[in-house]
């Protein structure tokens, strides 16, 4: 459905915006390395089923997400390492890993390796933006491209919400993926005040600056 496709393309767009920003400005300043590593962990743990992916659409996206994230990490850790300031990236990710690990172990759909890792990836994704938002809060402002990146990434999970509603009514099974929906709503809520500032400032051509 249209929400699902727009969501996935918004996710892909966010990555291209980030890569464009890094290469254009030859800098990864303002980007949280910790958030990027968490996204890498999200892709690895969610796409363990990559070799058995039957849908070409999903297969292509999975390969694109994993490879582009690897490339971003390479750029941040090697090529543009001097522009990456760890002193601004101080969020304690062990809380996020603990939160996702605990929920994945307590409420997986099934106690299989793939299912527990899948649930872990869903919960971890829901909070993986926090080091990035924390960094924004510390610096107080962001380049337009960084703001566009976060907005496109937030739009992705926000668009999955109407996708789930659409699927609930359009599919005969009426199934609700409780883990994905709960985590997806949490994820969207975490972006809400970012979205507000993005809407009131960046979309009107002003700088992203926290009040």
């Amino acid at each position: 459905n249209i929400f699902r496709v727009l969501g996935d393309f918004s996710h892909l767009a966010s990555i291209f915006i980030l890569l464009h920003k890094i290469q254009q400005l030859k800098s990864c300043s303002g980007i949280s390395f910790k958030s990027q590593v968490l996204y890498m962990l999200v892709y690895i743990t969610r796409y363990l089923d990559l070799p058995w992916t039957s849908s070409p659409y999903n297969f292509i996206f999975k390969v694109l997400f994993i490879s582009s994230e690897l490339y971003i990490i390479y750029l941040m850790a090697r090529a543009y390492k001097p522009t990456n300031d760890p002193n601004l990236d101080t969020f304690h990710v062990e809380f996020l890993l603990g939160f996702a690990g605990l929920l994945a172990l307590l409420f997986p759909y099934k106690y299989t390796i793939l299912e527990v890792f899948w649930a872990f990836s869903i919960w971890l994704e829901s909070v993986a933006i926090l080091p990035q938002l924390f960094m924004l809060q510390r610096t107080g402002e962001a380049e337009a491209m960084t703001a566009h990146y976060i907005a496109a990434l937030g739009m992705y999970r926000a668009l999955y919400i109407p996708n789930w509603i659409y699927r609930y009514f359009s599919e005969p099974t009426h199934k609700v993926d409780t883990i994905a929906v709960t985590a997806g709503i949490l994820q969207t809520i975490l972006y809400s005040d970012f979205f507000w500032i993005y809407y009131t400032k960046v979309m009107r051509g002003e700088k992203f600056k926290l009040p």
Binding site: R4, D8, H11, R46, D49, W52, T53, S54, S55, N58, F61, K62, F65, Y109, L114, W118, Y160, N163, D177, A180
Partner: peptide
């Protein structure tokens, strides 16, 4: 393939 049917979203 069964896994894909369970989690058919990205």
């Amino acid at each position: 393939a069964a896994k894909e049917a369970d989690h058919d979203e990205l």
